[in-house]
Structure formats: C-alpha cells, structure tokens
Computed example of a mutant assay.
Amino acid sequence: MQQNRRRDRRPVRRAGPDREPSPAAPALEGADVVLVGFFSGRQKDVASVMDAAADELSRRGARVVGRVVQRRGVSAGGAAQMSLPYSSRTLLSYGKVHETAALCARTRAEAAVFLWSLTERQCRVLTRMLGVPAVSLDTDTDEAA
C-alpha cells in the first residue's frame, strides 16, 4: 500500500558542514563600494541621506563608485505596503538586484554597502546574486567600534 505524501513538504535546510559559511564583512578601507538605499516614495531627503552615508564611508577610507536607490510607496498601493520589503530574501525588487549587480560589475566594486540592517541569510543571498560581498552600513559600524 502506498503512503500519501504531501506535495507541499520541502526538505528542511539545516546548518551543517556542507553549507557555505556566512561571508565575512570585508574591510572597507581602500575598497571601492556601491551604496544601496531603500526609501519611501514620500521621503524627500533621499540625496542628503545617501550623501551622509557616502561621507561616512569615505571617512572609513572607502570610495563610493556607484549608488542605487530603491523607492517604495510612490503609489497609493505601494504606500500601504511600505513596511514590507519587496522580497524577504533580498529586500529589493529583483530588477533592482540585477541593476545593482550590473553596476558592481561595471565599476569593479569590491562590496555593496546597504543602508539598513541585513540578516545573515540576506547577506548570503545578496552576495551570491551580486557577485561581491553585501554588507550593512550599521553592522559594519558596530564591528568597527
């Protein structure tokens, strides 16, 4: 007699020796980086926030070679969903991830620095998708202190 198998069951991924380790945050001193920000469509001071982050990175010795801005909430429907990321894996839309990857490749950036906190999983996924280490600006600040 055949057992009924549930089709929606997927194998659970567990941390183990076969899983790749979390990427270590690269030293930003002397590195070329791409700065990535996620903002509400209603936020008007996007340029000043990005400039302040670029200044912080240049104080640490990094050189910002590109900037990417993901806007959310420009439409009425988007404004209602502003608290939710586009994707729980990347926080960005997939088109914006591909745009960022192309910018990293074109500028030969050594890292992509995100303005918000990234989870370990998001760092791993973004690093794989972008081809360069993905780090969070505030996480790197905590490690540097």
Rank of each mutant, 00 (worst) to 15 (best):
M1R: 13
Q2S: 11
Q3P: 10
Q3F: 14
Q3H: 15
R5K: 11
R7Q: 13
D8V: 15
R9E: 11
R9G: 00
G16S: 15
D18H: 15
R19N: 08
R19E: 15
S22M: 10
S22I: 12
S22Q: 08
P23Q: 07
A24P: 06
P26A: 02
G30L: 00
D32I: 01
G37P: 08
G37V: 08
F38S: 09
F38W: 15
F39A: 07
S40R: 08
G41V: 04
Q43V: 11
K44G: 08
D45A: 14
V46P: 00
A47W: 09
A47P: 00
V49I: 11
V49A: 11
M50Y: 13
M50I: 11
A53Y: 09
A54T: 03
A54K: 05
L57T: 02
S58T: 13
V69I: 13
Q70V: 06
Q70P: 04
G77V: 13
G78I: 08
Q81I: 14
S83N: 11
Y86G: 05
S88D: 13
R89H: 15
L91W: 08
Y94K: 06
K96Q: 15
K96L: 07
K96V: 09
V97W: 04
V97S: 05
A102D: 09
L103Q: 05
A105L: 05
R108K: 14
A109F: 02
A109M: 02
E110Y: 02
A111H: 01
A111C: 04
S117A: 07
L118P: 03
E120D: 13
V125W: 02
V125F: 04
L126T: 04
T127N: 04
R128T: 12
R128H: 12
G131W: 07
V132G: 03
A134N: 05
S136R: 01
L137G: 02
L137Y: 04
T139A: 14
D140P: 00
T141W: 11
A144H: 03
